[in-house]
Every structure is written in C-alpha cells, then in structure tokens.
Design a protein around this nucleic acid. Structure first.
Length: 168
DNA sequence: GTAAGGATTGGC
DNA sequence: CCAATCCTTACT
C-alpha cells in the first residue's frame, strides 16, 4: 500500500532528502481526474543562503520566499521563458533548502518533467502534504544511487564542485 | 523604466 | 552552436 510521504520526511537536511527521493513515486492528479505515478530518477540539492547555486542565496524576494518556509512545499519557477522547474522545499523554516526534480521515469531533464506534469505558477507554494493534485508516495529503497556535480551552475564558484546531484 | 540573464531544450 | 521566450532582479 502506497503511503504519501509525511511532513517529517521533508523537514530534514536536504542532503538526506534529495537522495532519498530517488525511487520514490511522484503522483500527479490532473484536472480531468486522471492520476499518473512517476518514479523519481534524478534530483539535485540546493542548500541554503550560503550555497551560491541556490536561489535562496539571492535573499528573500517574491520568487524565493517560499524556499525559506518549512519543508514540504512546492517551489516552481519559469526559466528561459518556457520551462517550469519543479522543486520541493526541505528543512526547517529559514534553512532555505530545495530539491530540484531533474528527472522522472520516461522523462529526462527538469524542463521535460514540468511539461509532462503540466505545471504552471499556480503550483507555487502547493503543499505536498495536503495537495490533491501533486504529492510523493513511498517506495522500496534504491540500493545504488549515483552522484555527480550539479548541472548548469558554473557561475557558483566553489559550490559548483559539490556532488549534490543524485540519480539512478 | 530599462536591461541583462537564467537550476533548459531542441533544432540546425 | 544558438534561438526560443518571458519573468525576475538590479540598476538608472
């Protein structure tokens, strides 16, 4: 029996949350009532205001404020004018942790994830604990998870060296 | 008000 | 390699 991940799952260090999301089931209930489940295959951790690759390092702005809230919420933003990036906020209030969902089974790349899930700005701040249209369910642990440097953060100095990308 | 650039993708 | 496409942020 699949169980929705509770708030406690997200209220931890993003370096625990991000790799543990690999293999979990991302569930989307579309407007027409159709429910699809996708295995999460790739994530990246963004860790607080000190992490220059993390949007929270720019401080609290209308766009980033959700990252500073308690874990378990959705952070979405539009990039390059066309791709909706799906993130989950992690950690306690003001820790400013986020996990970017970079891939789900059958769809590689964060832009393709957002397109498949039909995301838009209305998902900003959505609670993964309460929502009836997007949440995460538990699944058997994955034995072998790969790590690498994060993608597309060349501007972040020493932070680009962190091995904070996780994938099957 | 104006301008620069982005946690990307797909096509040439 | 580079255009697409538009929002956010910083600066005048």
């Amino acid at each position: 029996m699949a169980v929705r991940l509770p708030a406690q799952f997200f209220l931890r260090d993003v370096l625990d949350v991000a790799p543990e999301l690999i293999g979990k089931m991302l569930v989307r209930r579309f407007d027409d009532g159709r429910i699809e489940k996708y295995r999460i295959t790739e994530t990246e951790a963004y860790r607080g205001i000190e992490d220059l690759a993390c949007h929270a390092s720019k401080g609290r702005t209308p766009r980033t404020q959700i990252i500073f809230q308690e874990g378990g919420k959705v952070y979405v933003y539009l990039i390059y004018g066309m791709h909706w990036m799906l993130n989950f906020v992690a950690g306690k209030e003001n820790e400013a942790f986020a996990v970017l969902i970079r891939g789900i089974e059958g769809f590689s790349g964060p832009g393709r994830v957002g397109r498949e899930l039909e995301l838009d700005r209305s998902f900003y701040g959505e609670s993964l604990i309460d929502s009836s249209r997007i949440w995460v369910e538990n699944a058997d642990p994955i034995s072998k998870i790969h790590t690498s440097k994060r993608i597309g953060v060349e501007y972040s100095g020493e932070w680009k060296e962190k091995m904070w990308r996780f994938y099957l």
